[in-house]
Nucleic acid binder design. Structure first.
Lengths: 178, 178
DNA sequence: CATTTTAAGTCAGGCTTGTTGACATTCCAA
DNA sequence: TTGGAATGTCAACAAGCCTGACTTAAAATG
């Protein structure tokens, strides 16, 4: 930091590791900040119309992805405290977007699923957010998208990475759970 | 740069547009969520030791990047309200991490720069965050990193993209401003 | 010069989303 | 049967964002 950014020409043939300078890393971090901010803004607009926030979005999204999951499983995905999740979940149940059933096998559990109205909102949110992604993916091309995903996957904490990728890529190693 | 770089094969076959399915878009969004969350956690740990939050980090970071910028310019980069920024900025000035000087050309302005102690904290924060980026970039390789950046850049709101990329890539088109 | 506009800062109050702590319920295993 | 673990709820608080309504100072404008 505070070093002169030397910039010796472009990536020339045998030039390796030039993409690992502090400057390159900083650019990666800054791009994550700006891109993430603008990405979530799309969904925020839809949420604001209905008086919800990002916490509600995340909650709805992962219930949609794994219908019938327990509160504990959702807690694990979101990495928040159960008290924090519960406030949000209570609103969604009260408003009829999420249904909470007592588990049959273990009656301590509450198993969550979307109601039809919940599915409607999730669809609206996905449409808002996917529009940006679709345009960008199309412009950038499959090569770039592949690199994008590779880097993002690598940024996930090592200990959780496998489980998160199972979720994202729709593999369900513990799938018989409900 | 935004051109699809014509490297055939290498990906999952010769199929076209398969990377634009709703499922692929969803994966992109989810990966952004998980990767961003884990990335900022690195800096959060350093911040928590000193009693600061992410708002302080962003503030310090962009003052470091553009020493001598005005409050209005910082406001524009961060896209928050001045009340919100001011609370944070006041703490940083009080704690001696940021210096606020009256502008010479326009004495209404307050021009911001880091003190040596501010630079120390920025360095610590950058080290914490860069460690993850460096490992990931190294593992993923320059091709993937290029794709990563291309996609992120495309996700920035079109109206602001050019200005943001000037900032990120260290070009200063409006650089004579102070 | 008088007026208007701009830059910055402040006070008051509200919302979302995160936190801890205390507690009730349910299940299971010693 | 009893104690511990898992699950969920209630209450209180903090961070960090927001809006709205000002004030002060300086610059720009007519």
């Amino acid at each position: 930091m505070t070093q002169p950014r030397s910039r010796p020409a472009k990536l020339s043939g045998g030039e390796r590791l030039l993409f690992l300078t502090d400057d390159q890393l900083r650019q990666g971090v800054e791009l994550m900040f700006f891109a993430y901010r603008d990405m979530v803004a799309d969904a925020d607009r839809v949420l604001a119309e209905r008086g919800y926030g990002r916490a509600h979005h995340r909650c709805l999204h992962f219930i949609w992805r794994r219908p019938g999951l327990s509160v504990a499983e959702l807690l694990d995905i979101l990495s928040v405290t159960k008290q924090s999740l519960n406030r949000v979940l209570r609103q969604l149940v009260r408003d009829g977007l999420v249904e909470s059933r007592v588990g049959q096998a273990d009656r301590r559990q509450r198993l969550l699923r979307l109601t039809p109205r919940g599915e409607d909102l999730v669809r609206d949110l996905a449409n808002a957010q996917n529009a940006r992604m679709r345009r960008v993916f199309l412009e950038a091309g499959p090569e770039a998208v592949h690199g994008f995903k590779t880097v993002l996957a690598g940024m996930i904490d090592e200990g959780r990475r496998a489980a998160v990728l199972d979720l994202v890529e729709d593999r369900f190693p513990e799938g018989g759970k409900r």
